[in-house]
Simulated scan of single mutants.
Amino acid sequence: MEGQPDVEPRNQDQMDHEREPVEDEWKSWQRGQVRNTLHLVSAAAQWILLLACLIYLGIDSLQPSTPRSDKVPWTHIRYSGKSNGGVAMNLTAEVGSIQIRNGSIMITCDGLYLVSLKGDITFDKEGSLKLILQKTDKTSGFLWEQTIQDSSGAVHFTTVLYLFAQDNIALWTSSNATIDDLSFSLVLLSPFICSL
């Protein structure tokens, strides 16, 4: 083998010694890959659990809220009779859990109330008549007021009012009138503070 450089034969120990760092590096890389895979699986599991919790909370918030009490305050009143101007009508509950005392509706819960009123009113006085829903203490303004121009007129009213516990409300007319088949409903929609 002339003309070829002399190649020293390597011994087996030297080759094994050079191979060990490469194998250690390969094993370290594999452990890193396993660790990265475990981190990825753990993160995916956490995101799935978070998504499941958000879905559960979303579905729960879409459920109708249950009141703190089994009975939701409400009343339905039917009234036919005479109304004296400036005097509260002597209302009595036909059905419902809201009490009526001396013609006044006793509010026991802070919250939004659906108020519905309809009926026919006839009056003799020239001009107009006002139908008023007001607190009985009369310290605040009217909760609702409707002016009736015709001496025989139909009243239709539906709204939502925020009422406070311990308020008493009553229905009034500004002058003498005859009320026919008045239907008045009051239902608590969303309680804020309730002392049932």
Rank of each mutant, 00 (worst) to 15 (best):
G81V: 07
I98W: 01
L62D: 07
L62F: 13
I48T: 10
K82R: 13
T66L: 07
I48H: 00
A45T: 14
L91S: 03
W47E: 12
L62P: 02
P73E: 05
L49N: 09
I55L: 06
G103I: 02
S65I: 04
Q46I: 15
V72S: 05
P64M: 00
E94I: 00
C53A: 08
Q99N: 14
Y56V: 15
G81T: 06
A93R: 00
K71A: 07
L50Q: 03
L51D: 07
V95H: 15
T75S: 08
I77W: 00
S80L: 03
I77C: 03
L57G: 05
A44I: 14
G86H: 04
L51R: 01
G85Y: 10
S83E: 02
K82A: 15
H76Y: 13
V87G: 07
Y79H: 13
C53F: 12
S65Y: 13
A52T: 13
N84Y: 12
T66Q: 07
A45S: 15
S61M: 10
N84R: 04
H76N: 09
V95W: 14
L50W: 12
G58Q: 04
D60L: 09
N102Q: 09
A44G: 13
M89A: 08
I98E: 00
R68D: 11
P73H: 05
S83P: 02
H76I: 13
G96V: 03
K71G: 07
N102L: 06
A88K: 02
V95C: 04
I48A: 11
E94G: 01
N84T: 09
I59E: 00
L49T: 11
Y56T: 15
G81I: 08
R101T: 13
C53S: 09
P73V: 05
T92N: 10
G85H: 08
I77F: 01
A93H: 01
L51A: 15
I98Y: 04
T92F: 09
S97D: 08
L51I: 15
Y79V: 07
N84W: 05
G81W: 06
I77K: 03
